[in-house]
Amino acid sequence: MAIYSIGDVAERCGINPVTLRAWQRRYGLLKPQRTEGGHRQFDDEDVQRIEEIKRWMESGVPVGKVRALLDGENVRVHDGWTTLQEELMSVLRHARPSKLRAKVAAIGRENPIDALIDHVYMPVRQRLGLDQNTARTMCSLLDGVLIDYVAFCLTGVRKKAGKDALLIGWGAEDRTRIWLEAWRLSQSGWRIDVLAEPLDILRPELFPGQQLFVWTEKKMTRRQLEQLEQWQQLGFSITPHGN
C-alpha cells in the first residue's frame, strides 16, 4: 500500500496542507496515521476521502456538514457558500480590518482556494461593486485584506520547491482579481510573482527565459490570440490563464 506525506497529498489533491490539518483537527474529517516522529501519513483510502470531501464542498456543502454525509447520515444541506458570503458581509458591515483579516485567514485555512475565489470572494465583490457609495468603500477594504492575505500565502509557497512564474494582467481592470488568480496558480506547484499593474501592451522580451502567465479578465480577442501565438512561435514561454 502506498504511503504519502501531507505534502505529497496536498500536491496530488490540490489542497493546502493547512486546510488538510483544519479538516482533521477541527472537523474530524481525516484520520491519518502517524510516524514515530509524529508526522502524518496518508494512504490511498485517505486520498479518495479527500477527493470526496472536495466534491461535496464544491457542490455547496458547508465543511461542518461534510462528515455527516460521509458517514451516510441524512442531513439537510443548504448552500454553504451562500452562508460564507453572508458571514463575510456581516464582518464587512462592522468595518473592522482586524476582524476581517481574521475571517479571511480562517476560511482560507478550511476551504479549497478555487471554491473560495469562485463561490465566495467574487460573488461578494460583485455584490459590493453594484453600490456607488458605502458598499464600494467596503469592497475596497475587502480587496486590501485579500491582497495582503494572498501576498502572505504566495510568500509561503515561494519558500518551497516549485516552478517560478510571473502572472501579468493583459488589458484587465480588476487588480485584485490578478492576485486571486495568482493564488489559484500557486496551488498547482507554481511559485508566482505578480506584475501588480495590468498592462495594455505586453513586452515578453523584457522577461527572457521566464515562464509567463497572462490573465485577460474577459475572453481573449482574436488580436490577442494571434499575438500570443506569435510570441509562442518566437520561443517565449507565455500561457493564457483562466479565460
Results as ranks from 00 to 15, higher is better:
229 E>W: 15
239 T>R: 15
69 L>W: 01
207 F>N: 08
103 K>A: 13
85 Q>E: 06
39 H>Q: 14
185 L>N: 07
75 V>C: 01
188 S>W: 04
3 I>Y: 06
194 V>G: 03
30 L>C: 06
220 M>L: 15
89 M>N: 10
46 D>I: 03
34 R>Y: 12
45 E>F: 05
126 Q>V: 07
26 R>Q: 02
230 Q>R: 11
28 G>H: 08
48 Q>K: 15
105 A>F: 01
140 S>E: 15
211 Q>P: 03
154 L>P: 08
39 H>I: 07
139 C>Y: 04
193 D>T: 14
76 R>N: 04
3 I>L: 12
232 Q>W: 08
138 M>F: 09
71 D>K: 09
92 L>Y: 10
183 W>S: 04
73 E>W: 03
54 K>E: 00
81 W>C: 05
229 E>P: 04
36 E>I: 14
90 S>P: 02
129 G>P: 03
150 V>D: 00
1 M>Y: 11
207 F>L: 13
208 P>G: 11
46 D>H: 12
243 N>P: 14
201 I>L: 15
202 L>M: 04
66 V>Y: 01
123 P>G: 09
137 T>V: 11
7 G>L: 13
9 V>C: 09
206 L>E: 11
53 I>E: 01
226 E>H: 13
16 N>P: 02
32 P>K: 00
15 I>H: 00
191 R>F: 07
25 R>F: 00
116 L>P: 00
10 A>I: 03
24 Q>C: 02
5 S>R: 14
236 F>S: 06
103 K>D: 01
15 I>L: 12
67 R>N: 00
216 T>V: 14
68 A>E: 00
197 E>W: 07
58 E>W: 01
129 G>V: 03
32 P>S: 01
142 L>T: 05
204 P>K: 11
1 M>W: 12
47 V>G: 10
87 E>W: 00
34 R>V: 15
83 T>D: 01
92 L>I: 09
91 V>H: 06
200 D>N: 10
33 Q>T: 11
59 S>C: 04
200 D>W: 09
112 P>E: 02
48 Q>D: 12
191 R>Y: 05
54 K>N: 03
171 G>N: 08
